[in-house]
Design a protein around this nucleic acid. Structure first.
Lengths: 341, 341
DNA sequence: ACGCGTCTTTGCAACGATGTAAACACTACC
DNA sequence: GGTAGTGTTTACATCGTTGCAAAGACGCGT
C-alpha cells in the first residue's frame, strides 16, 4: 500500500498538497480534531491512503514532549514472575495505545540507581519501577522529575504512586494454609537478614503472625537465609535446613522459584511431598501449576498490578495532580498437590 | 546534579551561551567530533556539567532519522523460552548502546502481520522478529523497508538476515540420545500436521532421520499433534498417547514446555520417569534443570542467537550492504535425570 | 442587509538537534 | 610575504510535526 515505496518519506506536506488543504488541516484530521467539515476530512483521508502516509513519531515527540513509550525496569526477565509481569504490563499498555521499553537491573543496586537517571528516561514518558535492592535510604534517588510508579514495598513516602500487594497478610494466609493441613514445623526459605522493608521481611512477619495466632512457638532455626530468589537458592536453602537436623514438616518458599528449587531438592533426596513435607510458594507463576507435584502458592493478582500500574502512570503522564496513591492489590491462596491433606 | 531542577529543560543553546561558543560546537563536543581544541572541549564540558545538560533524544531522532531503539517481536514473554531470549537480547543490546522495545504477537497470525507494518516501526531502527504462525506464503509481508532479522526457520529467501539453529540435526541428536539409552518406542509430542517449514516439521524430520539411521520403524501413531507449545498442551498430548494404548518407552517434547507438561502428566498418572518412560525436551530453559526429575534437553545456544541477531541488525542499521546472511547457531544435548540409564 | 457567534481553516513560529559548507586561524613551506 | 594545507569554529537551513492566534466562511436573528 505504501504507494511510493522506497523509504517512502511522505510527510504531511505531501498529503496537504495532494488534498489541496493546508498542512495544519492534515494535522487536525490525523489528530481527530472535531471541527472539520466531513468533505475535507474525506479528501485528506483519501490523500493519506493514496500516498500511504505515516506520521513521523520523532517529530511528534519533539513537538509534544511525549514519546508514547513507557519504561519498565525490573530485575530480569529470566525470572518467571517478572516475565509474566512484563507480559501483563505490555498487554495493558498496548490496550491503552502505548508501548513498553524494558530495562533489566540484574537486581544490582547501582544498576537500579542508574536506571532512574539514565539517558533512556528521555525516551520514555514515565517509568514503572520494580526495585529489588534499593531500600529506604535510597528514597532520595526516587525523587525524579518524571512520572514514576513503584512496585513492591521497599520504599515509601515519596512523590510517586505505589502498587503493591499486602505481603504480610498474604504470607500469613500461606502459613495459615499449612497450619490448617496440620503442619507445625514450618521452615521459611529465602529470608533476608537485617532487611526491614522488603518483601522478604514483610513475608516473614506474616509467617510469624500466623504462628502466633495459632499458638505455635517461633523457632529461628526454621528461618533460612537466601539472597537471590532463584531456584538454585531454594534448592540450596532446602539442603541446608534438612542437613541442619531440625524437624521440618512444611516449607514456605518466599517465592515460587524458591519453592520450586525446594521441590527439586526434596525430590532428589527422596523426601515425599506433601506426605513428609508440604511446600507452598508465593507468586503463582505458571510453572507452579505444572510442577510435580503441583505447587500451592499465593496468587498476587498480577493482572491487577500491571493494569493499576499502567493506569496510574498514564494518569500522571496526562498531568493528573491528585495526591500520590498507594494501591494494594488482592491476593488469594491457590492450594495444589504440594499441600494436599 | 540537575542544576536548574524542575523539569530542567537545558538545551544546547543554554550550554553554548554559558561556554561562550556556538551551539554547533556544543554538538560537536557531545558527539566526540575529533577536531576540537582541548581548551574548548573543557569549557563546553564544564558548562554541560554545571547546567546538567542532557541531550533531547527526540530532537536527535528527528534530525538523524534514528531512535536508538530496536524492536523485538515475539509470541509472549510468559513462555520461558522467549522470556530468556528477551533477557539475552536486552543484554546484548545494552552492551551496544541501544534499547529494546518488546511487542507480543500472542502467536496470532494477524498480529504477527500487524507488527511488521505497525506505526511502532517508526519508533524503532530495526526489528528482530520471531514469528510462530507466518509461513512461506507470507514472505511478501516480510519485504519491509527497514532492517529486519528473522529468528527461526519458517520463512526463507527474502531480503533479510536469518538466525536459526539447525532444528533437524538437533532433533536428530535428541532422538539419538533416547535411542542410546535403549529406547525404541519414542513418541513425539507437539507436532503440527501439514506444516513443512516450521520448527515442528523440521524437528519431526530430525526425529525420523534418527529412527531411520538406527533401523527403527517409524510409527505414525507415535506422532502426537499439539498446537501451542505450552505446558498444558504437553500434558494433554501425553494423556492422549498413553490413552491410545500404543506402547511408549520415551517421549520427545518438541520444546521444554511440552516436555514439562508431559512430566506433569506422567507424574499424575504414576508413571515413573525415566524407568518406564524417558523424556527429553528442547530449548533448555531454566526450568528444565529444576524439574522433578530434571529434564534432559537440547541447548540451542540462546546467548549466541541473541548476540548474532543484535549484531546483524545493528550492522544493517549502520548501513551495511553485504548479501543477506543465514546464521546457524550451535546446539548441544544436555542429559539429565529424565533420560538417565 | 448587517452584525454577531460559531464552525473551519490557515500561516507562522516553535520543539532541539545536526549536516553542509563556508569562514576563520594557524603552520609550514617555498 | 604569499599560498597551500590542516585544524577549529560558525551560521544557517532543515528534520516533520503541533500550539497559537487570527482569518475566513457560514448561519441566524433582526
Amino acid at each position: 500500500m505504501n504507494g511510493s515505496g522506497v523509504r517512502g518519506t511522505v510527510t504531511m506536506h505531501d498529503v496537504a498538497a495532494r488534498a489541496g488543504v493546508s498542512i495544519k488541516t492534515v494535522s487536525n484530521v490525523v489528530n481527530n480534531y472535531p471541527h472539520i467539515r466531513p468533505a475535507t476530512r474525506a479528501k485528506v483521508q483519501e490523500a493519506i491512503d493514496e500516498l500511504g502516509y505515516r506520521m513521523n513519531l520523532s517529530a511528534r515527540s519533539l513537538r509534544q514532549g511525549r514519546t508514547g513509550i513507557i519504561g519498565l525496569a525490573l530485575p530480569e526477565l529470566s525470572l518467571p514472575y517478572f516475565a509474566e509481569l512484563a507480559d501483563s504490563v505490555i498487554r495493558a499498555a498496548e490496550a491503552r495505545g502505548v508501548v513498553v521499553l524494558i530495562e533489566q537491573t540484574s537486581a544490582d543496586r547501582q544498576h537500579e540507581l542508574d536506571v532512574l537517571t539514565s539517558d533512556r528516561r528521555q525516551l520514555t514518558d514515565g517509568l514503572i519501577f520494580s526495585p529489588l535492592e534499593l531500600g529506604p535510604d535510597d528514597a532520595d534517588a526516587l525523587k525524579v522529575d518524571y512520572p514514576l510508579v513503584v512496585l513492591g514495598e521497599r520504599i515509601f513516602g515519596g512523590d510517586w504512586d505505589h502498587v503493591t500487594m499486602n505481603n504480610v497478610d498474604a504470607a500469613r494466609a500461606a502459613t495459615q494454609h499449612l497450619i490448617d493441613q496440620g503442619r507445625r514445623r514450618i521452615a521459611v526459605i529465602g529470608a533476608h537478614a537485617g532487611e526491614t522493608m522488603g518483601s522478604a521481611a514483610l513475608r516473614v512477619l506474616g509467617y510469624q503472625a500466623a504462628l502466633a495466632a495459632n499458638g505455635i512457638p517461633f523457632d529461628p532455626d526454621l528461618v533460612v537465609e537466601g539472597g537471590l530468589w532463584h531456584r538454585a537458592t531454594g534448592a540450596d536453602c532446602t539442603n541446608r535446613v534438612l542437613d541442619s537436623g531440625v524437624k521440618v514438616d512444611a516449607i514456605f518458599g518466599l517465592n515460587d522459584a524458591l519453592a520450586l528449587g525446594s521441590l527439586h531438592t526434596l525430590h532428589a533426596r527422596g523426601v515425599s511431598v506433601p506426605d513428609e513435607i508440604a511446600v507452598i510458594g508465593f507468586d503463582d507463576i505458571e510453572d507452579a501449576a505444572y510442577a510435580s507435584p503441583t505447587l500451592s502458592s499465593i496468587s498476587p493478582g498480577r493482572e491487577q498490578i500491571a493494569t493499576m500500574a499502567v493506569d496510574l502512570l498514564l494518569a500522571r503522564i496526562a498531568g493528573e495532580d491528585k495526591p500520590y496513591r498507594r494501591v494494594i492489590t488482592d491476593f488469594s491462596v491457590v492450594p495444589r498437590e504440594s499441600t494436599a491433606a
